[in-house]
């Protein structure tokens, strides 16, 4: 336990250092020393620094921290709930739902706020539909399996609707917007968005941390967890509601960012072990660090910004392979 808390502290320090460095990199590099001097002594070496730090980089950095952290925590709790380390936050269809919500709003030339609201709402609607379907089928099959299958059905449905929106969209103006949104990006994020989603994310994180021990007990399956005294229905509801809120609010402001919710929980489990009480904060920190670095790359490797979703997958896929390769030495 002591060792784990130390690891958690190290992860937090890494996150702080990464955050600081993220202020420095970009199209207009600033020396870390200058940033520190500005933040702590109020000295301005360069008249561009205040606006760059406060208006350009702060929302983006906060966005990357919140998005990376939230998607990772959502992935970790879903993997715990479904007792399957191959599960990612879009298992119940939230991603496709949110994607459809956004494309629909873009198609009707709605403003940014409307796109976000529509993505958030449709994401939650998709999860609700998944739960409804699995409730109707529940007597036929195993509950967890039913839920995963329902998620596939709803995901496929909304996936088709996204394709339909793309087909209907004006290929000169709307289609590029849709495609770009689906690739995920933090470039349009402002403090307004951060202020909107940060409270929802915080409210969703607290209950998950509180039920973390019970998620451990759930590892042996729902039936066994019940005989151990866990109210599994209530636990499942808390996890699904909170994880869906996390994912939907992230997607609403950042578009689709794949892979983070799948690989970061793995990586964190590798670092700190399977105990969800430590795994959830560890996943949040690791996910934040990962997305901060990906975002730093996306805004500095080329003169044109590369969409986040592309980079997370390009970096995530080989990283996942490495994590699995190393961790297969310990039996999962």
């Amino acid at each position: 336990m002591k060792r784990s808390l130390l690891l958690l502290a190290i992860l937090f320090i890494v996150l702080s250092a990464t955050t600081l460095l993220s202020f420095a990199v970009g199209r207009y590099p600033i020396a870390v020393a200058d940033i520190l001097r500005y933040l702590f002594a109020g000295e301005q070496i360069d008249e561009n620094i205040p606006i760059l730090i406060e208006q350009v980089r702060t929302p983006r950095i906060l966005g990357a921290i919140l998005a990376g952290g939230s998607l990772s925590v959502a992935g970790a709790v879903y993997q715990g709930l479904f007792r399957n380390p191959m599960v990612s936050p879009d298992i119940l269809g939230v991603t496709s739902g949110a994607g459809f919500g956004a494309t629909l709003a873009i198609l009707f030339s709605a403003g940014l706020a409307a796109i976000q609201l529509s993505a958030f709402g449709m994401g939650l609607l998709a999860v609700f539909l998944t739960l409804l379907l699995s409730r109707i089928m529940t007597n036929v099959h195993d509950k967890v399996l039913t839920m995963v299958l329902s998620g596939m059905i709803v995901g496929a449905l909304f996936g088709a609707l996204i394709a339909l929106m793309k087909y209907l969209a004006d290929s000169e103006s709307r289609l590029p917007d849709i495609v770009f949104w689906l690739m995920g990006s933090l470039s349009e994020i402002t403090m307004k968005e951060i202020k909107m989603v940060a409270p929802i994310i915080l409210i969703a994180l607290v209950p998950l941390q509180l039920v973390a021990w019970r998620l451990n007990v759930l590892s042996f399956g729902e039936g066994e967890a019940r005989t151990l005294g866990v109210n599994t229905k209530c636990l499942r509801l808390i996890v699904i509601v909170c994880a869906s809120l996390l994912t939907a609010s992230v997607i609403a402001v950042s578009g689709l960012i794949g892979w983070v919710g799948l690989i970061i929980p793995h990586l964190s489990r590798f670092i700190i072990g399977p105990d969800h009480r430590l795994l959830l904060p560890a996943s949040f920190f690791t996910g934040s660090v990962f997305l901060l670095w990906v975002d730093n790359l996306s805004r500095s490797i080329a003169s044109l910004e590369i969409p986040l979703g592309i980079l997370t997958s390009m970096i995530g896929a080989p990283l996942f392979f490495i994590v699995l390769k190393i961790s297969s030495k310990r039996v999962w």
Partner: peptide, 23 residues
Amino acid sequence: WNRRRFAQKVAYVPQARSLPFPF
């Protein structure tokens, strides 16, 4: 009775088990 109260009185040793995470 709720699950908790019952589990304080009756415990179960099941037949087959699988644990997906390395506890």
